[in-house]
Amino acid sequence: MNIFILEDNFLQQTRIEDIVQKILADKKIDCKHFEVYGKPGQLLEDISERGRHQLFLLDIEIRDDEKRGLDVAREIRKLDSEATIAFVTTHSEFMPVSFEYLVSAVDFIDKELPESAFIKRIENVISFVNDSQGETVSEDSFVFTGPKAQIQVPFKDLLYIETSSISHKLILYSKRDILEFYGQLSDILEQEPRLFQCHRSFIVNPYNISSIDRENRVVKFQNGSSCIVSRLKIRSLMKVVERLHD
């Protein structure tokens, strides 16, 4: 699980951070990445993973901007359609407005609740995310779990994955975005057998291949992007794609 808190008031930062840490300890929940931010830009820059394991606890009013947290939630949702978002705020009057932002927040927690109720609401959100990780993932999702990253994207959107110029890092290309994360191609293939390694530096999703140029050893995808295929892999890849279209 990854937890991100956006709160610009130092006392509230400390309060929420202490509550979250105690919940994690009491419930023995493993949290790989836990950060507290006072500035929205810092939080958005640090989003490097995707999936239901990501929890964002956002204040709505940031530095006298009454709706800044709603804007941040909308940006998060663009970056990660699977993330869990909850608002922790004194502006409960903005609850109806939040629906207009289409961010699908799971809760709207009022900071002025009695302390026991406030803690319970945060605990419920954390438990919700933790339990979601344990559910069986639909075959319509591509999921990768490694020592330094956990990724989840719709399988139908995944085009291909290539090695990065940065050691031990990979780049995932989907129909909607590009995502860099730490991992090995061999680990990807072990966890997701529907993918095909067409080159030592590339893994492709055969379901999204639109054509294969055998002469130039290039595979093209439905969105117009392409990647190379090794001479030894071209025939096998063609057979895989042919079977999918039978």
Rank of each mutant, 00 (worst) to 15 (best):
N2D: 11
F10Y: 13
Q12P: 00
Q13H: 04
Q13Y: 01
R15Y: 07
D18Q: 15
I19D: 06
K22C: 00
G41F: 07
R50A: 01
R52E: 13
F56K: 03
D59T: 02
D59L: 06
E61F: 00
I62S: 05
I62A: 06
I62K: 03
D64H: 13
L70N: 00
V72K: 08
R74I: 01
I85F: 03
A86V: 05
V88M: 08
T90C: 10
E100R: 14
L102M: 14
S104R: 12
V106M: 08
D107F: 04
F108P: 09
P114M: 08
E115Y: 06
E115R: 06
S116L: 13
A117Q: 14
I119W: 02
I119L: 06
S127D: 14
V129T: 09
D131V: 06
S132I: 06
E135D: 11
V137M: 10
E139Q: 09
D140Q: 10
V153D: 03
P154R: 02
D157M: 05
L159M: 12
Y160W: 10
T163S: 12
I166L: 12
L172C: 13
L172D: 06
R176T: 12
L179A: 01
Y182D: 05
S186A: 11
I188G: 03
L189H: 06
L189A: 09
P193R: 08
P193G: 09
L195E: 03
F196I: 02
R200G: 05
I209K: 04
S211W: 02
R217S: 11
F221M: 06
S226G: 01
R231F: 04
I234D: 08
I234T: 10
M238Q: 15
E242R: 12
